[in-house]
Design a protein around this nucleic acid. Structure first.
Lengths: 175, 175
DNA sequence: TATTGTTATACTCTATAACTATA
DNA sequence: TATAGTTATAGAGTATAACAATA
């Protein structure tokens, strides 16, 4: 007779555990951001804008988040309709749409970021501090390693490094 | 001037790191299983069947994996068309479709599981052994905690425990 | 000719509801 | 009346290709 009860077939699988953790986190995040009328990806866009010293274009934001530029159009549309961001034609290059946070967007971003941090803390609550830190550090290490292997078009150096184009960059990661 | 370069806005976010890790892993897994003509979810179904002492019905497999029964139909269809599983009407209850592995399915499962383990090892390769173990343990702890909070219909006790029905169990996690 | 934003179309995945056959 | 399997339909999300404006 095979053993199978608590050492479950599934909960021993890294892929299963990762997917489950991601889905659970995404569900919590969506619920927590709903009062702000924000999707997780929209918050990510606003955070990228706020963290950029140069005002980023739609394409730059898209590249940063690893989403397609055609997808970014709708995301910016949504944020603009809520009054959180504005589009402006760049003076230097009139093809570019520079995206900026409105005052309302800045306020919303600040509060939504606090909500996000609460979700992350609650999510990690079952772990002691050592384990929580180890988890985050390990995920970051893996993320950096994946980036180095060119397996991800996202979280590139952004405005800092020499703008590595990476792969063809299909739609990969939102948030 | 705000700092923002390597301590990136995104790579500090747990949600972002989890999603990225999941997507990267899923892509690797899909590629590694392609030679077996298996999707990750299909391998999960076969593994659940192999790990069950009682022959499971479609619905039981679906509950175990946290997928909807309407989705399971197509998965079993696909596996059956490849000759990896067979459907049989249960004698006790003729409503139930008992799913069993064919000999070819058992061979395929064994080899595909080895491929899966290779993918997981490669994925964790950037981590030292301590970190890799810590990551897996932390994810497992979180998974158990989520299950306890009833936030997941999956990885239930299966044939062992008293079959907790859990939530309404929409489509949640594949693998 | 290449790039940015945009739109349109197709395709995949999933959620919902219904239908059948059994119980 | 409830359950297991199945089917059909609609919706969300994404990929692809094309187009207009600009460089």
């Amino acid at each position: 007779m095979k053993d199978e009860c608590p050492p479950d077939v599934l909960s021993r699988r890294l892929g299963y555990l990762l997917k489950h953790a991601y889905v659970a986190m995404a569900a919590e995040m969506e619920a927590a951001l709903a009062p702000f009328r924000l999707l997780p990806r929209e918050l990510g866009v606003m955070a990228v804008i706020a963290a950029s010293h140069e005002q980023p274009s739609q394409l730059e934001i898209a590249a940063r988040l690893g989403v397609d530029r055609t997808t970014m159009v709708g995301v910016i549309d949504s944020l603009e309709s809520k009054g959180y961001v504005e589009r402006h034609r760049s003076d230097r290059d009139r093809r570019r749409n520079v995206v900026t946070l409105t005052p309302a967007g800045q306020v919303c971003l600040k509060e939504a970021e606090e909500a996000r941090e609460r979700v992350e803390r609650d999510f990690l609550a079952p772990l002691d501090e050592t384990s929580a830190t180890a988890l985050t550090e390990a995920l970051l290490t893996l993320h950096v390693a994946q980036s180095r292997m060119g397996r991800t078009p996202l979280a590139g150096p952004g405005p800092c490094g020499p703008s590595a184009p990476g792969g063809p960059a299909g739609e990969l990661v939102g948030e």
